[in-house]
Computed example of a mutant assay.
Amino acid sequence: MDETASVRLTDAAAGLLSRLASVHGPLMFHQSGGCCDGSAPMCYPAGEFRTGDSDVLLAELRVEGMDEPVPFWMSRGQHDLWRHTRLVVDVVEGRGSGFSLEAPEGVRFLIRSHLV
């Protein structure tokens, strides 16, 4: 896990993760910065997105009431650009990518970043 960047959740994001986990089981995030997902964090059932040497595990996010942490992965290229930031996963209204589990909820996960 990379200690130079930290990731935390807003209360809204934690609540949404808890609801999604009750339906889909253990979850994971991946943020690629690619064109298709617009650099939004994508939420998947744990293990559905294959990570590898081109990805960095930034955090294992703990959510009250969830048995397992939610790993937060980022592509190495994106991490190289954002390595000096603190990341906050939030939720906003509006439809995000159809690949992320929250898409049918009418909301989307969003990253807010702060330079350190």
Rank of each mutant, 00 (worst) to 15 (best):
G47T: 05
T51G: 02
E60D: 07
Y44F: 13
P69A: 02
R8C: 13
R112W: 12
V116P: 05
P26N: 03
L16Y: 09
V7Y: 07
H79W: 15
S100E: 01
D11H: 01
F72H: 06
L61I: 04
G98H: 05
P26A: 09
R19G: 03
S113K: 10
G98D: 15
I111Y: 15
H24C: 06
L87F: 12
A40Y: 15
P45M: 08
F109L: 01
A103V: 03
D80R: 15
E60T: 00
E64M: 05
R76N: 12
R62W: 11
A5K: 04
I111S: 12
M42K: 01
Q31V: 06
S39G: 04
A5I: 12
G65L: 08
R108C: 12
E102W: 01
S113F: 14
M42W: 07
L115W: 14
R76E: 15
D67L: 06
L61F: 02
A12R: 08
V70Y: 05
E102Y: 07
A40F: 15
H30M: 04
R62D: 14
V23S: 11
E105D: 10
F72C: 07
D53N: 14
C43R: 01
V56G: 01
W73L: 03
G33C: 01
M28R: 02
D11Y: 09
L16F: 06
M28F: 07
V88S: 12
L115P: 11
F99P: 08
P71F: 09
G52H: 00
S18P: 03
D67N: 10
F72Y: 14
D53C: 11
M74G: 02
S22N: 09
T4Y: 09
E93C: 05
R95F: 14
V92S: 01
H24L: 06
G106T: 06
V70P: 08
V107F: 13
R76Y: 10
A14G: 04
E3G: 02
C35P: 13
E3K: 09
G96H: 02
R50M: 13
G25V: 01
S22E: 15
C36P: 03
L110T: 06
F72T: 08
T51Q: 06
S54Q: 13
G38S: 14
S6K: 07
D67Q: 11
A14W: 04
P104V: 01
F29N: 00
V56T: 01
Y44L: 00
G15Q: 08
E60W: 00
D80C: 10
P71H: 10
D37Y: 12
P104R: 07
E64H: 01
E102V: 06
